[in-house]
Simulated scan of single mutants.
Amino acid sequence: MAKAGRQIREKLKLIDTVIEVIDARVPVASRNPDIAQYTAFKRHIILLNKADLADPVQSERWKAYFEQEEGVDAVLLFNAFDLKDKKKLVETIWKHNPKEKNQLKCLLCGIPNVGKSTVINALIGKKKTQIGNKPGVTKGQQWLTTPDGLMLLDTPGILWPKFEDETIGIHLAWIGSIKDTIFEKENIAGDLMKFLVARYPELVEAQYNITTNGRTVPEVFDAMAISRGLLLRGGDLDYYRACEMLLGDFKNGRIGRITIDECPEA
């Protein structure tokens, strides 16, 4: 990651616009504070990606919050599979072209698994970069050209060296930006279930056909495992599979539209 950061700095003089991609579900946890060094003196667009997986009310609040940040030229809620969102992003990039260049060079940066490569594929109109819902898919930098006259520099996801708050790491494990093997899977799944039952109980109940009212987190896991038939030989409940199911369902948006980081302006 240090090498990737050094390579980005070497190419900054070529860049017109920096597109900072963050996950709309965790706008705080998925934002690398070190990226500020790349956005200084550059046109800066924040892309709240995977907005289709996030709580729409919270997303609008986060959009307004980031629009007040000094040095930010535009903030967009983005779904890489929505053609209207793609068109709006292209228009926004070209709008910030004071020197009236015929071609603009854009740097896409962010932490692992926030969807940078999916965004690039959407802008290009066909698959040019490898994508996957796991960290570390993009291995090196590459320049790619779009039909709209943009040159995009795709970069590997870069994390900062140390999380001051362990909660940041847990939230990133929930969305798949760091390997969940770094933590005990049962622990991070338990933390996720505790959050979901407190903030989005109706989504948990609908997804697993259970009730959460009056139940502790272990009791909710019991109900989930029974509902989904997650049993070991002998009839004991398979908690490991229940944890894997919960983490996978959340990461892939199957539980519903959820935002973990609550906007401080809310």
Rank of each mutant, 00 (worst) to 15 (best):
A189V: 00
E265D: 14
E20V: 04
L83D: 13
Y65W: 14
V220R: 00
Y38L: 01
E244H: 10
A206I: 03
I175T: 14
W94G: 04
D16N: 12
K99G: 04
P218S: 06
V217N: 05
N209K: 15
D55A: 06
I93Y: 01
Y200P: 04
G229I: 10
Q58C: 11
I15H: 02
L153P: 00
T138Q: 08
A189P: 02
Q141W: 01
C263D: 11
G115N: 09
F78V: 00
L152T: 09
R199A: 10
G140F: 12
E91C: 03
N97F: 04
P218T: 07
R25L: 13
K42P: 04
A24Y: 03
D52Y: 04
L150R: 02
R199F: 09
Q141G: 15
H96I: 07
Q7C: 07
E186A: 14
S177E: 11
R233C: 03
S59I: 06
Y200V: 04
P135V: 06
P264S: 03
K139E: 11
K87Q: 13
L203A: 11
L53Q: 10
Y200I: 05
F221G: 08
T118V: 07
P98H: 06
P33W: 07
A64W: 02
G248W: 10
K185L: 15
I46K: 09
A266W: 04
D165G: 01
T155V: 08
Y38N: 02
